[in-house]
């Protein structure tokens, strides 16, 4: 792979970097809020992946104008539309997770998973 190719795929590198960052946070952090932040970064990387693949070189926004030339190239709108759904799913997941964290915090008085583990073992 030449340098140009590597640089040309820069958006994929960003996707992979974000994906691994998010995934690492989910695995490594014991604080539940941080886990959710990691999960969000992880999901966001997938949004970028989809949006990247919808872009067509020299393509313009996929809106048909009456005065457009016949050979105009449009970008693919479908991946972006799919991501609207995925964003909604992501928001729902985050909202539910935060609601659960509020309840956990009420019951245990902490949002650190290792402390909760100790509390559970003691009881």
């Amino acid at each position: 792979m030449s340098t140009e190719q590597v640089l040309g795929l820069y958006n994929y590198w960003i996707v992979i970097f974000l994906m691994m960052t998010g995934f690492y946070i989910v695995i490594a952090r014991k604080n539940m809020i941080k886990t959710i932040i990691g999960l969000n970064i992880f999901q966001t990387s997938v949004f970028l992946l989809y949006i990247t693949m919808g872009k067509v070189r020299d393509g313009e926004a996929p809106i048909i104008r009456p005065d457009a030339e016949p050979d105009v190239i449009y970008s693919n709108p479908l991946p972006s539309v799919l991501m609207l759904t995925a964003i909604v799913v992501g928001i729902a997941t985050t909202a539910l997770a935060l609601a659960l964290i509020v309840r956990i915090r009420e019951d245990y008085g902490t949002v650190e998973e290792d402390k909760i583990l100790i509390l559970d073992r003691e009881s």
């Binding site: 886990t35 999960l39 693949m53 997770a97 964290i101 019951d107 909760i116 559970d120």
Partner: peptide, 29 residues
């Protein structure tokens, strides 16, 4: 009080799983 905790852990695992599926679907598309 362990129920919300179990649900939270399931949510994290489940979302990772679902996101993996989403990545797979994207690549196939």
């Amino acid at each position: 009080r362990r129920a919300p905790l179990a649900a939270f852990q399931y949510l994290v695992m489940g979302t990772i799983g679902a996101t993996f599926i989403l990545i797979g679907i994207g690549l196939l598309y």
